[in-house]
Write a protein that binds this DNA or RNA. Sequence first.
RNA 1: CGGGGUGUAGCGCAGCCUGGUAGCGCGCACCGUUCGGGACGGUGAGGUCGGAGGUUCAAAUCCUCUCACCCCGACCA
Length: 490
Amino acid sequence: MSKSIPTREENYSEWYNEIVKRADLAEHSAVRGCMVIKPYGFAIWEKMQRALDDMFKATGHQNAYFPLFVPKSYLELEEEHAEGFAKECAVVTHYRLKSNPDGKGLIVDENAELEEPLVVRPTSETVIWNSYKNWIQSWRDLPVLINQWANVVRWEMRTRLFLRTSEFLWQEGHTAHATEQEAVEETEQMLRVYADFVENWMAVPVLQGLKTASERFAGAEETYCIEALMQDGKALQAGTSHFLGQNFAKSFDVKFVNKNNEQEYPWATSWGVSTRLMGALIMAHSDDKGLVLPPKLAPIQVVIVPIFRSEEDLAKINEKIEPITNALAEKGISFKVDDDDKYKPGYKFAEYELKGVPVRLAIGLRDLENGTVEVARRDTLSKETMPLDGVADHIESLMSEIQTSLYDRAQAFQKANTTSVETWDEFKAAIEKGGFVVAHWDGTDETETKIKEETKATIRLIPLNSAEMMGKCVYSGNDSPRQVVFARAY
RNA sequence: CGGGGUGUAGCGCAGCCUGGUAGCGCGCACCGUUCGGGACGGUGAGGUCGGAGGUUCAAAUCCUCUCACCCCGACCA
């Protein structure tokens, strides 16, 4: 194992790949486009899941589970949805193998073809609405507020660990409401939940807004999104929340009887975030020494490295460590004492920096004499020696300080890399430089496409609640009612 | 799917051009000395050379096919 990883400056994507590998987050599997999430990486995902799940429950949702397989005929029912996902579906056509009569191994049993092919879910709107048909009859059955944690498959041409894999883990919320207004409110509420999570747990600031028609989820009336800015100046869609109108209700013939005994189609939403958030987390905070994790999502918040020569030294040091770990445990702060004698302290320091552990304590014989301990912060790489007394309290406040500091740093970066432009030349220069570019757009697909072709920049979002501000489209010069946010994106 | 590249020990690589007993560094195991920013010495284990087929007395090396991964594009959370 070489000591250093490429710097962000040298090669950003290689830096990213190395962090994922070296911090033990994930690795490529033998299956094309799929990844193995390793225990340390999965521990972070589990923390994300826990926080999000609590937030979903707090907003009245319940978890359920729907099948992995979607009958092809279901997928076909909502036309735009079908068209949007058709190109990337894995399809199951047979249900049995048999031994190869011409040699060794197994072959598909041609006598075991399914009457109807099953699609491995790229998303679950269709199976779920097929169930909702039975669940929803009266206005009293509404709203239906369901979430599921699941894996989905989208057969991607080019994959990157966490950012885009053929199979990925996510949650998908699927709700049904009696009125359009209620569904829109749900859509917006869940977007705020996502923004809250990403900002307050991941310490990554996001922009919130609406997607343009071309970027909209297949089958949605409106797609809301949160967008985060990565350190290389590219945008990353971190979560989406869709207002689905009555499209799926109509396609699956789901109706309810309202208070006036009239048949109505319910209004739908769906919303999701995925293991892609892991990519956002990595790219938002990490540095050339490795991963940097916000305390709220770090599997190990504090690592304690005793510095010792003999077993006797270690025993003496452990006497001092024990009160600290007891106090940390009481405060609910996770820790690890690494007294492995195989590696030297310097090696351990580098290793835990690579893994992004927010705080490191080092304590040796010198400290025993002085009644001190060395406290190091991963985010600033700063160290201080402080008295043993009160160190747990200090760590507790460090946790929130680091959490806040990471957010502030990311927000300052976002601010510094958001440019407002008026002219096409300014626009091209700003896109080339990277970051979010705020500009007027005439609202046409044609202009959006032209801009994408010429600069590779896409409209990341139309900011929510932005005041009308007349101007001229940066590309066409036509009238534009408001500014939108452009960027090159992942 | 197009263009470029890479597959040889757990990891990183040399060897291939010019066919002839498979090597180096790191890691791993054991022993000793070390231990406050990636320690050192000694001994040792570990490889159907990505896979299949072909040429040849002989293939990591030459030929064909195939699979996987990486980088750059088109598609996408």
